[in-house]
């Protein structure tokens, strides 16, 4: 009888966990649809979106420049000996450009933005929630959801593709400088090779994928902050959740997009 009761308790606890998980999934679904709906419904938050776009770019530009450049250098340095052993050193621009445009650029940018912007959005909205600033906006009829959430999600969605293009260029520059350091290849020759080997599909899929990265970062950060628990620990937890979940989402989107794009290759 005792064992049966224990089993029932464990089953009930697991059931409650599952229920709570499903509830959260439903809440996230509602949150996403609310963002999408509010995006198309006036009044539009043009001014705030522009302001957020500036912050998104400004906050991550230095880190993206730094990491993309180093990634370009390191990838070229690592690949060169292998290609050289096959006498295929001339393929280096082709290999690097495809790797950077298809995967490295979006992934580096996505992960940096997940850390930098995800935590920022989560902490900012979380502290606003904790200090009742969001409630104050709500009761004064100022539609905080559009102002705070829709503007941030739109900004990250629009800015990520631009940042990815920038990261690609910086990484390729890093790669070119490395190639040039070992065997003097000209700038035009290197980038001619890049342009020949990168297809429109590569660029287009990379941009679409990074827009999804941006959307995920904005949604996860905003959701974590907007639904932050009360107290200072709530803010920390919101920022942490935003970073961890956004990073996982980026890898999942990357994997799914790879499967999808391969259908067209």
């Amino acid at each position: 009888m005792g064992t049966l009761m224990e089993s029932a308790k464990v089953f009930f606890a697991e059931f409650m966990k599952l229920r709570s998980f499903l509830q959260q999934v439903a809440e996230i679904y509602q949150f996403v649809t609310r963002v999408i709906r509010n995006f198309f419904v006036p009044p539009y938050e043009g001014r705030e979106i522009l302001r957020q776009c500036f912050f998104v770019g400004n906050r991550s530009l230095f880190l993206i420049t730094f990491t993309a450049f180093i990634a370009g250098v390191v990838f070229t340095r690592q690949s060169r000996p292998s290609l050289a052993s096959f006498g295929a050193e001339s393929w280096l621009p082709s290999l690097v450009s495809q790797a950077v445009v298809r995967s490295l650029g979006p992934l580096i940018t996505g992960l940096i933005c997940a850390g930098k912007l995800g935590s920022n959005i989560g902490a900012e909205l979380g502290s606003m929630q904790v200090s009742e600033q969001i409630d104050a906006m709500e009761v004064s009829g100022t539609r905080p959801f559009s102002f705070l959430v829709v503007s941030r999600v739109t900004a990250t969605t629009l800015m990520l593709p631009l940042l990815v293009v920038y990261a690609d260029v910086v990484a390729l520059l890093g790669s070119f400088l490395t190639v040039n350091f070992f065997n003097s290849s000209s700038f035009s020759l290197y980038f001619n090779e890049v342009a020949t080997n990168v297809t429109y599909l590569d660029v287009f899929s990379s941009l679409v994928k990074s827009a999804f990265f941006g959307f995920a970062i904005g949604i996860v950060g905003s959701y974590a902050g907007y639904h932050s628990e009360k107290g200072t620990t709530g803010v920390g937890k919101a920022a942490n959740t935003a970073v961890v979940v956004a990073m996982i989402m980026i890898f999942v989107i990357d994997l799914l997009s790879l499967q999808f794009i391969n259908l067209f290759r």
Binding site: M128, S131, E132, Q133, D135, A136, M137, E138, V139, S140, G141
Partner: peptide
């Protein structure tokens, strides 16, 4: 809500 003013315990200034 525009006709109701709400003064929060912690002021809730932005």
């Amino acid at each position: 809500r525009l006709q109701i003013g709400f003064s929060f315990q912690g002021s809730a200034l932005y």
